[in-house]
Design a protein around this nucleic acid. Structure first.
Lengths: 228, 228
DNA sequence: ATTCAATTTTCATCTCATTTTAATCTCCCC
DNA sequence: GGGGAGATTAAAATGAGATGAAAATTGAAT
């Protein structure tokens, strides 16, 4: 089970520390950014599962940061955490794209259950399914095994991750940028062609010698797994 | 666009009526159940998009009702709305499977934005922006495929981007300058006619041979996609 | 620590589709 | 009949992707 990563953007060190420690107690991995600019930077560099935002923070305020994040990512849960408790503020928070809004002072227990509620949905989507399939290919996410028809296929770690990611998005075309970020954790253009090479590796193992091909190239857009 | 259906389970008629009217004002379809048993019945009979639960209601209390609903449906957003504002209550509410918890008295505006935030995700998941259409043309933004009638149409990356952009602005006339900036990232006049060429490519693939034309030239202004 | 094999990454090359340019054609309006 | 806007075509330039092989890295075993 991979770690759940949370980003806190909060300038009051005491509060940030309090939340960080509390969340780490519950096995979340927590990063703290002390202003909006750094928060945005962290967000761009790491694939967080949830973001906690204070509003009154230096550089970029919480509402604006929330909007900025939403232009890029509509899915990631954002919880705004602030002393601004007027209905006007709350409405503004939600209209900036937040998923929840909690007014300080708050009890840690409440924050925790609200975070859990937010994570529940995004996590259940991916996880839960143990077996991923496409045509006569079966990938077992627990056992880390792959079979095509009745032939066992040996994949290396990276090959497995790549295939798993493509299967999770079966039918969708996935860009190289997405793959680079998810599987190689590369967030900028390095000019590498590892992805192409690995797709080539995968094809050799799961498509070569079978009449129906699963991995398809969509020129200029990316790769996709499609059953035909 | 199909109607969004909300179920309110609330025994205080005044409160129920107040919320119902307010939500109907925002074009939601609202049913009210006055106790837990009826609430459960309604839930089983109709496919709601969201449920608002009071806690202190006759027959089955809100927390238990929430749990009952969750055994059958993990996805439907549930918002608990109650005077019970202690952290213990809030935690219990979330642990019963609620997605949000709002303490009475509350301002209607806050309820509204919280409802919107909850609906945002479930609705976006299904469709939302995945499919763009015009007449019998369907463009799938995930699969990067285009169909007209039942004919699959193969587009190159640039062709796809152009068509997608025009469909996103269906009914609007888009200037060449806009297209150049959005699709070709050209921000000054280079004297090129790529856009004309690509519109020609697109027409050949999606309009030629079909009786109704989708791409229209507005001389001196740009191009538009219009269903006739 | 050293070795060795497996895995991961880079690099260079080949091929071919896509993209772009530029020339020509068509139509409409004065 | 000339000018302008747009459409179309063919040819040229470009770039994307596949792949083989070599280099670098990792990590396990000794």
């Amino acid at each position: 089970m991979s770690e759940i990563k949370i980003l806190i953007v909060e300038d009051e060190q005491k509060v940030a520390r309090f939340i960080k420690l509390g969340l780490e107690d519950h096995d979340y991995h927590v990063d703290v950014a002390f202003d909006g600019k750094i928060g945005l930077l962290f967000f761009q560099q790491t694939d967080y599962d949830l973001i906690l935002l204070d509003v009154n923070i230096p550089e970029i305020n919480g509402f604006d940061l929330c909007k900025r994040i939403r232009t890029v990512n509509q899915k990631i849960p954002i919880l705004i955490l602030t002393a601004l408790g007027l209905t006007d503020h709350i409405v503004e928070g939600f209209e900036s794209g937040a998923d929840d809004y909690l007014v300080k002072p708050f009890e840690f227990r409440e924050l925790l259950v609200r975070i859990k509620a937010l994570l529940k949905r995004t996590l259940n989507q991916d996880q839960g399914t143990k077996l991923l399939t496409a045509d006569d290919l079966i990938l077992d996410r627990d056992a880390k095994t792959v079979k095509r028809g009745n032939k066992q296929i040996e994949l290396t770690a990276k090959e497995f991750l790549l295939l798993e990611y493509l299967l999770l998005n079966k039918g969708k075309v996935i860009s190289r940028v997405d793959i680079a970020e998810k599987i190689w954790e590369i967030n900028f253009d390095t000019g590498t062609n590892v992805i192409d090479v690995y797709v080539s590796f995968l094809r050799k193992k799961i498509d070569y010698g079978f009449e129906s091909k699963l991995i398809h190239t969509v020129v200029g857009m990316g790769y996709t797994i499609r059953e035909e």
